[in-house]
């Protein structure tokens, strides 16, 4: 009974304290973004089309597309073995 009363008292006091301390949140009225400062380092690349400047395109390099292994097909073969 004694503990019950103490708990009741504590919870009431905590509630009254919360009511007193009203927290107000304020948001910034204005915010500016300096887009010039957000410069991204890198090469200018684009997929390009027939009208684009050819120098800016990444040129198709045959050697990048030559198959280096058959791992994907080996894995597929294993899916068939079950």
């Amino acid at each position: 009974m004694k503990y019950l009363l103490i708990t009741l008292f504590l919870s009431i006091s905590a509630h009254s304290q919360n009511a007193k301390e009203k927290v107000e949140y304020q948001y910034k009225k204005e915010e500016y973004f300096d887009f010039d400062a957000l410069e991204v380092q890198g090469q200018l690349l684009s997929p390009g089309d027939l009208t684009s400047n050819a120098d800016k395109r990444v040129k198709f390099q045959i050697k990048n597309f030559i198959r280096k292994d058959f791992d994907d097909y080996i894995r597929e073969d294993l899916i068939d073995i079950h």
Binding site: P47, G48, L50, A54, R57, K59, F60
Partner: peptide, 8 residues
Amino acid sequence: EMELDIYT
């Protein structure tokens, strides 16, 4: 990609 580069 290959086709585009051929045209270019």
